[in-house]
Design a protein around this nucleic acid. Sequence first.
DNA 1: AAAGCTTACAACCGCGCAAGT
DNA 2: AACTTGCGCGGTTGTAAGCTT
Length: 292
Amino acid sequence: MGRNPCCSKEELNKGAWTALEDKLLISYIQAHGDGQWSNVPERAGLKRCGKSCRLRWLNYLRPDIKRGNISHDEEELIIRLHNLLGNRWALIAGRLPGRTDNEIKNYWNTTLGKKAKAQASIEASPGKYTKKIISTESGATEPSSSSQATKAKTEVIRTRATMCSSQVIFPLQLPASLDVDVTNFEESFDEAMFEDWTRNPCLNNNATTDIDEHRDSGLNSTVEAQVLHSLYSDGSHSLNSEVNLLKPSDGEFEEPFDEAMFKDWTADPCLNDNSTVGLESFAFLVDPDEWP
DNA sequence: AAAGCTTACAACCGCGCAAGT
DNA sequence: AACTTGCGCGGTTGTAAGCTT
């Protein structure tokens, strides 16, 4: 499929944006709104490609952007989300109001990645289960040291955020006894999760799913608990295996969903064709050597 | 003070997906 | 069905600023 390179025009500016360019772009968007990025440069009087304008706006000029000073809480959330989602920065950023995917990606690559790696090394010591970081095709994220040997078996390759839903089934409600910030947790996993949920290929008639690939792995609810524990606790809590589904607050379900499915995990047609109710889709997150 | 090194981050690049024609 | 266009994503690069020697 042919496509013209976005910024191939020689007369277009590249590199750092000037204050004047910023001003022009802001003025244009304030007057006309964003979108139709390919038309923006001409209409705004900028010698930039539309893509560059979009990037500048989304990552830098938008008024609702918080920049710098990433808090400790945000750090922890990023780390946990990264453990869950891998390098899907847009998804992670979507859970952090005011943060952009680019900022989080940069922050990870320069700061958190190192911290997470160090943390993983500590936690890889014998005993409890280990956290497993989802590796990507680029190798930008390294797995915990203990799982090198099993990397080949468990590596998951996904690049697009939209693909996530086929692997991770949510939403989940933490047990009330768990001492974590459930309010923030719920806030962090609402609309987008349900939006993605509806795209779960397991829930339509297209038979090929990643979940199917993991179904035979024999995971049980203990593993579910371990995965959740690794994601949402700091290691000082224990999490029992009673994981309940959380119904969307506005009660709207899209076909083929129904309320019963949210009340009872086993109602999911994806999961009930064998007797083991589990989060098989989490299989890729845990080290097979440590399965109970 | 100067050179070399490291870090942080803005910006670019190529690709894939979805919608439109 | 084939192709084009627009958009969004993640990986990578370039470089300014800060730090160390």
